[in-house]
Design a binder for these strands. Structure first.
Length: 268
DNA sequence: ATACAGGTCTTAA
DNA sequence: TTAAGACCTGTA
């Protein structure tokens, strides 16, 4: 167990923002998070944040995963200095971070997310982990399953996938696994690409359209210019920015602004 | 009941 | 190139 003082960081807000489908409340201001084949519990009390891991694991993994090197204060300052709506949104979601999640996990998770609700998305993802992931035991003695890698899902039949209640998305995942296994789409190469190139490659995957590709670019590849437009964002843009959203003002961090708006619309 | 949930694919003009 | 329709399933 280690203790940190981190400003502009709220594990509760990150959990509720819906960018990661594998974390759950485990008590008051306490959350369990599974990522990168690891498990950690995080609790916040006042200005203090406690991580149930070693200093080494924090530095090696969770620090990057939660994007703790970045100064979100300066982004919030800009957002709050602009229009009224964005100012409120930034203040409301000031503890949000754009996570550095696993590319493959984000591809599958956001294919599942389409035309779906958070509750079922989480259940579907957990089902995949339970059936096809690797079983592990954390230092706290908690049993969990890792997210199955491409190879693990390559051995899964169409029928088995359909049994996970993914609906019509099971076909998308089946096809996507093949595209990657065959080498038609190269995930390691995508990691080295700029935003535009990475998005173009991701769009080759069955079940990945504009919105899902942007979510993957933002939450896995950390391309902060990605600005996923879903039904919520669409509605906010139409209601509050009828003359168009001033995207140019937020060059380099539009994705962070998107998350403030999304979270405010969802929870505010 | 029936519409809808962080869209995308397919088909037809 | 664009625009309807279809699509799984659970929940409100």
């Amino acid at each position: 167990m280690i203790k940190k003082e981190i400003s502009n960081f709220s594990i509760k807000q990150i959990s509720e923002s819906g960018q990661c489908f594998r974390q759950n409340p485990a008590g008051e201001n306490r959350y369990s998070v599974i990522a990168g084949g690891r498990y950690v519990e995080i609790e916040q009390r006042g200005k203090e944040t406690f991580f149930s891991c070693t200093e080494e694991e924090y530095r090696e993994f969770w620090h990057t995963y939660f994007d703790l090197d970045r100064d979100y204060g300066k982004y919030m300052e800009i957002a709050e200095g602009e229009d009224d709506y964005l100012s409120r949104a930034a203040r409301f979601g000031g503890g949000i971070r754009i996570l550095n999640q696993d590319l493959w996990e984000m591809i599958v998770s956001f294919i599942i997310s389409q035309q779906n609700n958070i509750k079922r998305i989480k259940r579907n993802v957990e089902e995949l982990c339970l059936r096809f992931g690797e079983k592990k035991c954390s230092a706290e003695g908690v049993l969990y399953h890792t997210f199955p890698d491409v190879h693990a899902l390559a051995g899964v039949s169409k029928e088995e996938l359909r049994d996970c209640n993914l609906g019509y998305r099971s076909r998308y995942i089946y096809e996507t696994v093949r595209s990657i296994e065959s080498g038609e789409v190269d995930l390691e190469a995508i990691k080295r690409m700029e935003y535009a190139g990475a998005k173009k490659e991701l769009l080759k995957l069955c079940g990945v359209g504009e919105k899902v590709a942007d979510c993957i670019c933002l939450f896995a590849l950390h391309h902060l210019d990605a600005f996923p437009v879903d039904t919520h964002i669409r509605q906010v843009l139409d209601n509050y920015y009828p003359k168009g959203f001033p995207m140019k003002k937020y060059e380099g961090f539009a994705g962070i602004v998107q998350q403030y708006i999304f979270y405010y619309d969802l929870m505010g």
